[in-house]
Design a protein around this nucleic acid. Structure first.
Lengths: 137, 137
DNA sequence: TCACTATTACACGATATCGTGTAGTAGTGT
DNA sequence: ACACTACTACACGATATCGTGTAATAGTGA
């Protein structure tokens, strides 16, 4: 992107077809040592905003688990109306988080942005470690 | 918490006084293999919601960097009105993300919830790796 | 007590969010 | 063309968010 931080990303799929992202030189708190520009703050806000919703979290989690799913599948799995699912998928698509593929009458969605899975994973992990009573707004 | 997942957290402070959180048995995508309960989704939403704001991100980032800061300090550093800063800090305090300490007329805030730093760190890291055009709403 | 500073409580208004219902489109088969 | 399914576009209403301005509170010193 604009600024170059020396982060190396290694993405590979294991036998189960699952994607693992390894971050080298992650050196925790590396980013915390330099000032956070308003632009970066806005980009980060945009990223977290997409994850800051009950529905989208379950939706994305479902997509991460199943690699690909149609609107109807998801609506059925999450017990939601297709419109609501399509709504959120549209939003997620606009921000580049997911991508779609048409097959007959169905439209299959998949996670596109690599930030989703790791962040979801870390969040769930950390929420266990911490009490994270933070939940109920 | 309610459910027990075998995650081990190790927190320690190095010579510089910075806290590092190591997660053992993190095994990426572990959480993605079991169904995400609506409750967990809500808790995760709550966590991400606190990070889904321009102001709070800069605020938390500042707190992570300086370990502790008063309302006035932050307002000054981020070029914001004290009320706005206090507002957000209040919200962050309600959700257990930060804690406060009074010293004279000033109130010093610090990051309390261990999820904050790692998530911020990972997000910034990943946004570099990915294009993450996702930003602009 | 008075003045002063730092912080907070609260109501207001502008804006954003999200599910719903209705209507529309695309693809497929008859 | 017609019916049917899967999805989407859009307007609406309820609710949430967030900075602002005003007023209140807490701490400190004269």
């Amino acid at each position: 992107m604009a600024k170059s931080r020396k982060t190396t990303k290694t993405t590979h799929a294991d036998s189960a077809g699952r994607t693992t992202v390894q971050l080298k030189a992650r050196r925790s708190n590396l980013e915390d040592r330099k000032l956070l520009s308003p632009e970066d703050a806005l980009r980060t806000e945009g990223l977290f905003k997409m994850l800051a919703n009950d529905t989208r979290i379950r939706l994305l989690h479902h997509l991460v688990r199943s690699r690909e799913a149609s609107v109807g599948d998801i609506a059925n799995a999450l017990d939601m109306k297709p419109q609501a699912v399509s709504n959120q998928l549209q939003r997620l698509s606009d921000t580049g988080m997911v991508a779609s593929r048409r097959e007959g009458v169905s439209v299959f969605y998949r996670v596109k942005n690599g930030c989703v899975a790791p962040l979801l994973d870390l969040a769930l992990c950390l929420m266990d470690a911490e009490g994270c009573d933070s939940a109920s707004r």
